[in-house]
Design a protein around this nucleic acid. Structure first.
Length: 489
RNA sequence: GGCGACGUACCCAAGUGGUUAAGGGGGAGGUCUGCAAAACCUCUAUUCAGCGGUUCGAAUCCGCUCGUCGCCUCCA
């Protein structure tokens, strides 16, 4: 049984689907007014892993993830850059798709854009109006929170609590401070659409109610997003959707924020690291590993330090990449061992790895625990690989084959270890060479010199070369098949 | 001020009522090696912010104190 933490219930509950075997899921995507940062990556990776696990369990998941392509910040950016808001949105939507693909995030089944569903939003607002949950005011349309008594249930606040701190901004025409805009009247220089209330554009929250309804129906199983969306965004979605259609999401899942220097990483705080910035110096798979090494609901750290030259460096990412290196090296060893052997007559039974990771992921998608189990399996694999006499030959082969198979299955669920090991390993080495200004040809030449010295038993000279390369960051590994080298992580 | 989390070793981080408190990093020894690296082995929290309480039994439940963070305004 799959357990999931439901924000509204405030605890882990059994996932009971509306239709057995099928999951309808809506995840709030991004507002495309700038490049995506590590915080976006966190949320989207978290839900990617959740979807991957549900699918691995045989469930048919329909994932809808929206793109908000009309909003104040997009408009402001367009004005600042002297180009239409739609062009700004298009540009960053493309960038987002590229970055998500680079992070190995599976594309959603449906990726609706707000501006393509204006008619659906108008329809939802009309329904709300018909039920006295919406009222027009000077070309705007507001949601009347007073008509929705359970407002605040998701975030655990009462209408009274909320009322205390709420305010009406200048230029708004709300009847009550908690009311929020469903439709905003057109202002000069802003994109606008025709509506029964005159030209204007949608409020932020209405698009998710309209698009989730269009693609998932009156109700669906899971609604997800970053925890910063709980209030007011998701609270407002509930008010809109339940108000208009009577029902909505059955389970609410929220991923934790990424902290940097003890503060949330966000565009408004100006402390963002974009995904592209990370990709300049690291393998994005390392970012993925770093993000899933923490439970999805907990805050994740992303440490930024300065090197001697004052350039930003990311120690947590370095470590994650080194760990990924270990995973891939172990896989490479497993492959090398298993490749020449005839496959076992019968498929080996699931390893402890498969069992333990399955249990961890069934328990509210505990990817951090799953990674712990991955280490256990890889330590065992290396031990068996190192010691041919560890167990009888057929058993040893079976155990290693099971780990290799199950590790890749775990990788498929977590979205890591999906490449041929050599591809990762060599690309990482090349990247580290660039970072440390190491010339591969020089290294290769010195290795040839050293091999000659070793053949001649001139060990002092051989050690001199080893030390010289070591000083530049290159580590030599003498193996039965020759000398390999790596760059110290 | 309101609401909600969190505080586990030098660092990161699982565990949320019951065998020896996962795992990783770092550190200290060791096996292997001409020397190394890698890999592997051993050690590194009688204890889970503090203080009370419930219980046969708590890191896990309750209360208080201290500390940190998030939301309450755009936010993944």
């Amino acid at each position: 049984m799959q357990r999931i933490y439901d924000t509204r219930a405030g605890k882990k509950v059994d996932l009971v689907l509306r239709e057995p075997g099928k999951v309808g899921m809506y995840v709030c995507g991004v507002t495309v007014y700038d490049l995506c940062h590590v915080g976006h990556a966190r949320t989207l990776v978290a839900f990617d892993v959740i979807v991957r696990h549900l699918r691995a369990r045989g469930l048919e998941v329909r994932l809808v993830r929206n793109i908000t392509d009309v909003d104040d910040k997009i408009i402001r950016k367009g004005n600042a850059e002297g180009r239409p808001a739609a062009e700004v949105a298009e540009c960053y939507a493309d960038a987002m798709s590229t970055d998500m693909a680079a992070l190995g995030i599976a594309a959603p089944d449906v990726e609706p854009r707000a501006t393509q569903h204006i008619a659906d939003m108008i329809e939802v607002i009309r329904r709300l109006e018909a039920r006295d949950l919406a009222y027009p005011a000077e070309g705007d349309v507001y949601y009347s929170v007073a008509g929705f008594p359970s407002y605040g249930a998701l975030s655990g606040q009462s209408i009274d609590d909320l009322q205390a701190g709420a305010r009406i901004e200048v230029g708004e025409h709300k009847k009550s401070p908690l009311d929020f805009a469903l439709w905003k009247r057109a202002k000069p220089g802003e994109p606008a659409w025709e509506s029964p209330w005159g030209p204007g554009r949608p409020g932020w929250h209405i698009e998710c109610s309209a698009m989730s309804h269009r693609y998932l129906g009156d109700s669906f199983d899971i609604h997800g997003g970053g925890s910063d969306l709980i209030f007011p965004h998701h609270e407002n979605e509930i008010a809109q959707s339940e108000g208009a259609f009577g029902s909505f999401a059955h389970y609410w899942m929220h991923s934790g924020m990424v902290n940097f220097g003890g503060e949330k990483m966000s565009k408004s705080l100006g402390n963002v690291v974009t995904i592209r910035r990370v990709a300049e110096t690291h393998d994005l798979e390392a970012l993925r590993l770093l993000l899933i090494s923490v439970h999805y609901r907990s805050p994740a750290n992303f440490t930024i330090a300065r090197d001697g030259a004052g350039l930003a460096v990311y120690p947590d990412l370095d470590e994650a990449e080194a760990r990924l290196d270990y995973f891939y090296r172990t896989l490479e060893r497993l492959d090398a061992f298993l490749a020449p052997l005839a496959p076992p007559p019968a498929a080996p039974p699931p390893s402890d790895l498969a069992t333990n990771v399955g249990a961890a992921m069934d328990d509210d998608f505990n990817s951090a625990a799953a990674i712990g189990h991955l280490y256990d399996a890889f330590v065992l694999a290396n031990k068996l690989l190192d010691d041919p006499k560890a167990m009888p030959k057929p058993e040893r082969q079976k155990a290693l084959a099971a780990i290799a198979r199950d590790a890749r299955a775990v990788g498929a669920t977590l979205g890591i270890m999906l490449r041929p090991p050599a591809e990762f390993l060599l690309s990482r080495r090349d990247r580290l060479c660039v970072r440390r200004t190491i010339d591969r040809a020089v290294v290769e030449a010195r290795i040839i010199d050293r091999t000659a010295a070793r053949k001649a038993k001139e060990f002092a000279r051989a050690d001199e070369i080893r030390a010289e390369l070591k000083a530049s960051g290159v580590e030599l590994m003498d193996t039965p098949t020759g000398t390999a080298w790596r760059v110290a992580g």
